[in-house]
Amino acid sequence: MTETDLHGPANVKTIGCTPFLYDSDQALFNVRSGISVLDALSQSSDLLSLARSFTEDAAFTRDTDRHAWAAHYLTVMGKALIDDVIQTLMPRTARTKTESEAEIPECS
C-alpha cells in the first residue's frame, strides 16, 4: 500500500463532534465518529436530495406541514454530516492528550 492509499480520502474518518437536533440547549444527537468521510458525504447527499423533494411537496400540499417538517429534519442531519466532515478535514492545533483523554475526540 502506498503513502497516498494510507492517507487518501477513503481512509479519513469523521471525528463525531457535530451535534444536531436540540431540546433547549442540549443536543439530542451527534454524528458518530469513525465513519468514512466519503460515506458521510454520500449519505448527506441522499438526505439533502430527499429534503429537496419534500420541500417541493410542501410547496404544493396546503393541508399539512408534514412535508416541511420531514425536509427540516433531513436537512439538519445532512448539514451535521457535512459540518463534521469539514471539522475532520480542517487542521487542528496539536496537543498531547492525557491518558484519560485518549479516546475522546477533540471537538471545538
Rank of each mutant, 00 (worst) to 15 (best):
P105C: 07
L6H: 08
T61A: 05
S44Q: 03
R62S: 12
T14F: 07
H67I: 00
E103W: 00
L48Q: 04
A10L: 11
P9E: 13
H72P: 00
A94R: 10
C107Q: 07
F60D: 08
S42T: 14
G34R: 08
N11Q: 15
S44E: 03
C17E: 03
R52E: 12
P105N: 08
T93W: 03
T88D: 06
E3A: 09
E101P: 02
T18V: 15
D25A: 02
S108W: 06
S44L: 03
A10R: 13
D46K: 12
H72L: 12
W69R: 12
H72E: 07
R66Y: 04
T4W: 08
E101D: 11
L50P: 00
I15R: 11
C17I: 03
S33I: 00
D57L: 09
H7I: 10
M77H: 10
D23G: 01
K97H: 02
S33G: 14
L21M: 13
I15L: 12
L21D: 13
P19L: 06
Y73N: 10
V12M: 10
H67N: 13
T75I: 01
A59T: 10
P9L: 14
T2H: 09
C107W: 06
K79Y: 09
A68Y: 04
A102R: 12
A94T: 05
Q26I: 13
R62N: 05
E3R: 06
D39S: 14
L89P: 01
T88S: 15
A10M: 05
L21I: 15
D25C: 00
D25H: 02
A94D: 07
V85R: 09
V31Y: 07
E101I: 02
A58G: 05
A70L: 07
T2S: 15
D25I: 02
A58M: 01
E103S: 14
V31R: 05
M1S: 12
E106G: 06
Q26H: 11
A10E: 15
T98N: 08
S24D: 15
S53D: 09
I82A: 13
D46R: 13
I35L: 15
L6C: 05
A10N: 08
D84I: 05
I15E: 05
S53C: 03
D39M: 08
L28P: 00
T55D: 13
L41Q: 13
L74G: 10
D46M: 11
T55W: 05
A59Q: 12
